[in-house]
């Protein structure tokens, strides 16, 4: 029997990649892997960002998504530049997942996943206080990674 978490995110499970522009203006590539663990009791969501050659690791993050009693997604996560935090789902449209939570320095981190045109868009931003400025960290349009078509021998 599939868990409620798996039912909701079944279409997102797998490996995704896409171009990413980093705040410093550098272009890179993000790879995102969404993997069920413990029979779908939770999802492990890991991302790494490299430069365009794939040789230099420029960013990384990993988290576990699970469902709270009220059905919202809770995420414990680590990001290379933001450290460790817990994010909670804010209500949004059913094809999207918006998670936000506090960073140690008083800022709030918001990570938004939304499904569009068969792809997955990931946006992350930080904000200061309730009315403070919002800094968009990155917007990435991800496509499902596909096996290349290898001609038969």
């Amino acid at each position: 029997m599939r868990s409620a978490l798996l039912k909701r995110f079944a279409g997102w499970i797998g490996s995704w990649s896409g171009p990413v522009q980093l705040p410093e203006g550098r272009d890179g590539v993000m790879q995102l892997d969404i993997t069920p663990i413990f029979e779908g009791d939770a999802l492990e969501v890991g991302a790494i960002m490299t430069d365009q050659t794939g040789q230099v690791l420029i960013g990384r993050g990993i988290g576990f998504w699970s469902l709270e009693r009220d059905g919202r997604v809770c995420c414990v996560m680590y990001g290379g530049s933001v450290g460790f935090t817990e994010l909670l789902e804010s209500p949004d449209d059913p094809d999207a997942l918006a998670l936000s939570g506090p960073l140690g320095d008083g800022r709030t981190l918001t990570v938004m996943y939304s499904q569009n045109d068969g792809g997955l868009q990931l946006t992350s931003s930080t904000s200061e206080g309730y009315t403070g400025s919002v800094t968009v960290r990155n917007i990435t349009q991800l496509r499902r990674r596909a096996e290349s078509e290898i001609p038969p021998l």
Binding site: I62, F64, C74, V76, Y78, F84
Partner: peptide
């Protein structure tokens, strides 16, 4: 050194 954890009993925690 810190971490994140997911437990089938306790769910996610730092």
């Amino acid at each position: 050194l810190r971490g994140i954890a997911y437990s089938t009993i306790h769910r996610g925690y730092l």
